[in-house]
Amino acid sequence: MDYVGRFAPSPTGPLHFGSLITALASYCEAKSNQGQWLVRIEDTDIPRIYPDSEQHILRCIDAFEFVPDGDILFQKDRLEIYEDVLVQLKAQHDIYACQCTRKMLGSNAIYAGTCRDLNLDFANQAIRLKVNDEPICFDDPLQSRQCSNLAEDLGDFVLKRRDGIISYQLAVVVDDYLQGVTNVVRGADLLDNTARQIWLGHCLGYPELNYLHLPLAMNADGRKLSKQNFAQALDPDNASELLSQAAQALNQPPLDLDRPSTMLAQAVAQWQRERIPQSTILSQIYQ
């Protein structure tokens, strides 16, 4: 099967250096395997979209001279597709309506299946996916073999919120399938999402993907670079220097400073996945 990878940022804030590491690694993995590289904007959580963040993402893709192999996809334009998938899951009896509020659930991290057998009407309720009491495992080239029993670790999980927002889990699984994605390269902060996505894909009859979770860039406070932690936005005017730093963070051979497209070609030509630190975090501090 031909390799299809993707970079799928969420516009809950501007792209930061951790985002660039993911973009570079996913691009190099795809291109070094003679594959395609797609870009998707994961913007289903519309209330959390940060002003101008989508424009910043698109500006950075242009400034860093990443060229996607196809049109950039916006999830907020695909809500009807996700609703159709919920209809399929309902017909398969894989989902149910849940009236539990956060207040009712309290601090319980594992959903106890309170509403699973109540046969509630689906209107104006959260929608949960049933999980099985069995391990789900996958092999990650950087993070080794990962296993999770969703029934023990999480319980039935939400695919659509009470306020109508489609969950990240549903949208990402459906779009990876419809876009023909075969390989997912992303940060290790998403490791605990993978078992959920494998299970949902199994329920929908989708082929299982290959996953690679990159170590996270950390700030001086020991927290991962993220929009929530106010990581510094990427400066499109400093693209070449930042690309060089991202390659260094991934422990790749040095890049010659040049225009970004030339540096990307060099990064692909000398890409060595085995050099990426086999850890969930990078040892160097970034801003």
Rank of each mutant, 00 (worst) to 15 (best):
D175Q: 09
L170K: 13
K130C: 13
Q169Y: 07
G180H: 10
Q179T: 05
R186S: 11
E208R: 13
V158A: 04
I198Q: 01
D163G: 11
E152H: 08
A123Q: 13
H213P: 07
L200S: 04
W199L: 07
K160P: 15
L150T: 06
D176W: 04
V131E: 09
F138N: 02
Q179P: 02
G155K: 04
L154F: 01
D189K: 02
S144L: 14
R186E: 11
Q125D: 01
Y168Q: 05
L170G: 07
L191D: 07
R162E: 15
F138T: 02
D189F: 06
S148F: 04
L159D: 02
N210T: 13
N210L: 11
N210H: 14
L129C: 08
D133N: 15
A171R: 01
N183H: 13
A195W: 08
E152F: 04
D133C: 11
D189V: 04
V173T: 11
D153M: 07
I165G: 02
V158P: 03
L209P: 07
Q146F: 00
Q179N: 08
Q179L: 14
V173S: 01
C203W: 09
P215S: 05
V131P: 00
Q143R: 10
Y211Q: 13
Q179R: 05
L214D: 10
W199G: 02
P135R: 08
E208M: 14
A151Q: 11
N210V: 09
N132Q: 15
A171Q: 06
L190E: 02
N132I: 10
R186L: 14
A151K: 12
L212W: 09
I198F: 05
I136M: 08
G164N: 14
V131W: 07
I166V: 14
L154E: 03
D139T: 10
P141M: 02
R162A: 15
L129D: 00
D133E: 14
V185N: 10
D139M: 07
Y177S: 00
G187S: 00
V172D: 03
C203I: 06
A126S: 14
V173H: 00
R186A: 12
G180N: 08
N132G: 07
L200Q: 00
C203L: 14
F138P: 05
D133L: 13
P207M: 11
L190K: 01
V158Y: 04
A171V: 09
A195N: 02
D192Y: 12
P141C: 06
V184D: 03
D140T: 09
Q179F: 10
I166L: 08
Y211K: 12
Q197S: 02
L212I: 14
I127A: 05
D163P: 10
N124E: 11
L129V: 06
N149A: 04
Y211A: 11
R145Q: 08
A126F: 01
R162K: 15
L212E: 06
R128I: 02
C147Q: 12
L150N: 00
L170E: 09
A217K: 12
L129Y: 02
D140F: 04
Y168H: 01
L178G: 15
C137S: 15
E208N: 15
L204P: 05
L154T: 07
D163Q: 11
G187H: 01
T194M: 03
N149D: 13
P141R: 04
E208S: 14
I165V: 15
V174L: 11
